[in-house]
């Protein structure tokens, strides 16, 4: 399974980014092999609608689940339409969050968790 974790600096062992639509990088991980790569978030500088654009990018990359701090309403609606499962975490590195995901301790959300964020 391919999952995406929001990241500030694109590294696997530093603190993740709690922002979704406007994080700097997504760490894209294959949960079977633990192989990962860092992709710059193309929606970072979007004038509006960063959440939906980030989801479009992740959907195109074959991502099936996402982990971040919280999801705005537009991001969540788009994830739902794309059939991507949405998980939240408060803290951790992508490596730790991958382990938490694999052990089933991460919280899966069924609605938006944050108000729309404007920059």
């Amino acid at each position: 399974m391919i999952i995406a974790i929001s990241s500030t600096d694109g590294k696997f062992n530093t603190e993740f980014s709690p922002r979704f639509g406007r994080c700097n990088f997504f760490i894209i991980v294959d949960t079977d092999t633990r192989e990962w790569e860092s992709k710059p978030n193309p929606a970072l500088n979007a004038r509006g609608g960063a959440g939906p654009q980030a989801v479009q990018f992740l959907s195109g990359a074959g991502v099936e689940a996402t982990i971040t701090g919280r999801y705005g309403p537009n991001a969540y609606t788009t994830l739902e339409a794309a059939g991507i499962r949405a998980y939240v975490a408060e803290a951790g590195t992508p490596e730790e969050l991958l382990d938490a995901f694999l052990s089933g301790t991460l919280e899966e959300v069924s609605s938006a968790t944050g108000e729309e964020l404007h920059h």
Binding site: G48, G49, P52, Q53, V55, S59
Partner: peptide, 18 residues
């Protein structure tokens, strides 16, 4: 130009406020 309409997973979503 404003990303107010998104096609994903075979569905077309409209974000009216954008």
């Amino acid at each position: 130009q404003f990303h107010a309409i998104v096609v994903i997973g075979g569905k077309t979503l409209v974000f009216p406020e954008m």
